[in-house]
């Protein structure tokens, strides 16, 4: 129950951050691939840096253990990524 509530609240902030960054708009997504608007990259890289710093600090303090790290299988990651990029550039999602 608590877990459901946590997911719901975190989801609210997830959606809010995407919307406020303008990433719910087609042109924002596709323009990063045209090198005319780098909002997607700025957003993604900031998220990565903040969460990396937070998680590695918490891990170092012994407060968390990392959940299952996504598996690396190069062929799958590459082929999946290539197909994904086509969909992303087409839909703007």
């Amino acid at each position: 129950m608590t877990n459901t509530l946590i997911a719901l609240v975190l989801g609210l902030f997830f959606g809010l951050s995407l919307q406020k960054a303008g990433l719910t708009k087609y042109h924002k997504i596709v323009n990063v691939f045209r090198f005319t608007d780098f909002a997607v990259l700025k957003f993604m890289m900031t998220t990565l840096i903040v969460s990396m710093a937070g998680l590695y600090t918490l891990k170092w303090m012994g407060l968390i253990t990392f959940p299952g790290v996504p598996a690396t299988y190069i062929a799958g990651n590459v082929i999946g990524g290539l197909i994904f990029g086509v969909g992303m550039a087409f839909t703007g999602y």
Partner: peptide
């Protein structure tokens, strides 16, 4: 996008 991205970063940490 830096502000919104930072917020999502915090959300990511809280999820874990």
């Amino acid at each position: 996008p830096y502000a919104a991205g930072a917020m999502l970063g915090v959300v990511g940490v809280l999820a874990v």
